[in-house]
Design a protein around this nucleic acid. Sequence first.
DNA 1: CTTTTCTCTACAGCGGCTGTAGGAAAAAGC
DNA 2: GCTTTTTCCTACAGCCGCTGTAGAGAAAAG
Lengths: 147, 147
Amino acid sequence: MLSIGTLAKRTGTKVQTIRYYEQIGLMPEPGRTEGGQRRYGNEELDRLAFIRHSRQLGFSLEAIRELLDLSDSPERSCAQVDAVAQRQLREVEARIARLQALRSELRRMINECNSDRVADCRILEVLRDHEECLADHDKPGATQARA
Amino acid sequence: MLSIGTLAKRTGTKVQTIRYYEQIGLMPEPGRTEGGQRRYGNEELDRLAFIRHSRQLGFSLEAIRELLDLSDSPERSCAQVDAVAQRQLREVEARIARLQALRSELRRMINECNSDRVADCRILEVLRDHEECLADHDKPGATQARA
DNA sequence: CTTTTCTCTACAGCGGCTGTAGGAAAAAGC
DNA sequence: GCTTTTTCCTACAGCCGCTGTAGAGAAAAG
């Protein structure tokens, strides 16, 4: 039986994160000692490892929930599992494409700046005038997993 | 003089976002009508356009604050502006590299799955066993601007 | 003058954690 | 067995960058 701290170390997770996963129902409520401390078995260890590894691959907690549900019904077709993975792949590809566009624009902007004084800094000009952009981007702002 | 809604439309920003920028000191407190509604001039329009465009290039609000401060001192060297842009470029490059690693791992995982049943789905196996990973990644989890 | 549209403030919520405070339980050292 | 240290508990606030909501008042349009 593992304490929450040991489980955390074994999976490279923070203790609070494990409690957070429990709170949102991604990890089950574990048994407790007389003193009220959580104790985990191997099943929970595996589940948490699965979650963490999926997170490292950029899956959202919702997607992970879905994968965990699917893996609980071993007789079903794994087409759905495939679909979740494909979706994730497409998201990653879209993010790469977007970042590559950003990268070239940043590079262009930086290369054009030969000036010394802020007054005629091309970088600031480009930032000021959207017109100088090669391409429009879709709206920014939402947050996402760093992955 | 522009109302907040007009300013929002002109810059592709939501009204609440403008108020949020004001709240965190990125936009100045504008003048008001007798009835207490915000009215903006061209200076504020330009400033907001600058902010929005920088956001589209993935700059954090903190970085934008820095750029705005720098652009207020036109006689200074633009080396600092350049540094901020370079930093942003490096961050974008790092994210691209990371996402590319994820992409290949996702592709590999998906390609290996030839099974029909969830019970022997390779995707789930890979997610379960971190050992099957080609490379370890650093920890995920922090949030960031989508850009 | 009425209706519609816009704006106001204040606050909660998103994802995915992370940090903190104040206390209790468990492990380690002697 | 006793003390010290470490770990654990709950509860809640904060991070980023917004976005949405409620209920009320102001401004524009018909």
